[in-house]
Design a protein around this nucleic acid. Structure first.
Lengths: 219, 219
DNA sequence: GGCACTTTGTTCCTGCGTTCACAAGCGGCT
DNA sequence: AGCCGCTTGTGAACGCAGGAACAAAGTGCC
């Protein structure tokens, strides 16, 4: 009865977001159809895997032809839930927070910042884009008033857990954490972590592993 | 003959980096030993998984007691290859690039920016921290002079691939890409991608999946 | 109208990552 | 010195993601 199996693997969802971006680019370029091979190449994945990913949302291509760019884009937009813009609050307006608040790429992808917060009086009142930085005290009120569903944390590590708790209590259901700590959130609240140091350390490891420099250097 | 099996799964490496950070915090707090359960809890993973991760680098705990904090931290530091600082070049000094260049967290974790580059004359010469933004022309020279092994891309999507090619040609072996495009690099060059929009879209999907809001909203 | 080519959607299979459960080893107590 | 409890390290099973190969289907051409 349900056309969608309703359970799409998380790894697949992440790739769907990538496909969506590629499709947007193709649509801008005037393309009307794409084959799985071409799309997979642009997204950096295996063609078979791409078709399997897409199969999770039912048949949406035409055999012998490929996928309709606009159609597939709209369907992905719906499935990913970015049909309507999601309100986001951003806590911690340091360097990284300011950069994110000012990043234009979010607005065009279904996300809109509806509140910027910081604890430092020096930051409060500062304008970034079309928003003003507010005091942390107003966090709950703004979340309630705007119905923001996503919280982005760019605070120092020491206060991240406390802010996370407040966001969850205020009704935010998804949190994107840039602070270098592992957060614990109540059930029903999703937390995703972006850790730049970890990414660099993985790269460092892969680099040194590829060339075990210093091992056989005895000449 | 080789004490290390030499092949550590990438997912494990990412977690090792997390453990390392937790250990650093514990060491600062004066703790001398930790059990796998406590460490796993702080890192947000399964205790058994943590022990398996650690087993990849040989026995390094004491049964009945736990792990020596300082000892394990040093060993992880060595294994991850952040014993010596890695030189990083950062290309694209926009909002995000500036934030990363100014982020103090990297220096304490074995990474040091040795060059900041931008194509815009308006940016060139600007000082961020202890470095000056240089013209993109100098990229190859600086990489050669400093032996930088890691490149960080925070450029617009349109030029990311070109810069990636130049970095690879200049001898950079690891690239961390923040630009919203899928890069292709020659063999021997590792590319890791951090895509903020994708993270948000995954959150949006998980949020809407949990509550099919809008289905019963007849009011 | 029929045929062949192209491309999707699916199925099978292989490999990896994760988890659970047990045996081995070490410290502390008696 | 011997025993007990605690914790690590490892072996095995489960589940999942990724990749390759095959069948179905639709288009364009002859």
């Amino acid at each position: 009865m349900q056309p969608r199996p309703r359970t799409i693997p998380e790894a697949t969802v992440a790739r769907l977001a990538v496909y969506l971006r590629v499709l947007a680019t193709l649509a801008d370029g005037g393309r009307s159809t794409v084959s799985s091979g071409e799309l997979a190449s642009a997204a950096g994945v295996n063609p078979a895997g791409l078709r399997k990913d897409l199969s999770h949302l039912g048949p949406c291509g035409v055999r012998g032809v490929g996928y309709d760019v606009a159609l597939l884009r709209d369907r992905l937009t719906r499935v990913l839930g970015v049909e309507r813009a999601h309100g986001c609050v951003l806590v911690g307006i340091g360097n990284l927070g300011s950069a994110l608040a000012d990043y234009a790429g979010f607005g065009t992808r279904g996300f809109e910042f509806v509140g910027l917060f910081d604890a430092s009086p020096a930051r409060i009142g500062q304008r970034i884009g079309s928003l003003q930085v507010r005091a942390l005290d107003e966090l709950e009120d703004v979340v309630a008033a705007t119905g923001a569903s996503i919280g982005v944390l760019t605070t120092p590590a020491e206060v991240a857990q406390r802010v996370c708790d407040r966001l969850a209590a205020a009704g935010v259901r998804s949190i994107l954490n840039f602070a270098p700590v592992t957060l614990t959130a109540p059930a029903g609240v999703d937390v995703r972590k972006v850790d730049l140091s970890v990414e660099l350390q993985v790269l460092a490891f892969l680099g040194q592993q590829r060339v075990p420099a210093g091992v056989g250097e005895s000449a």
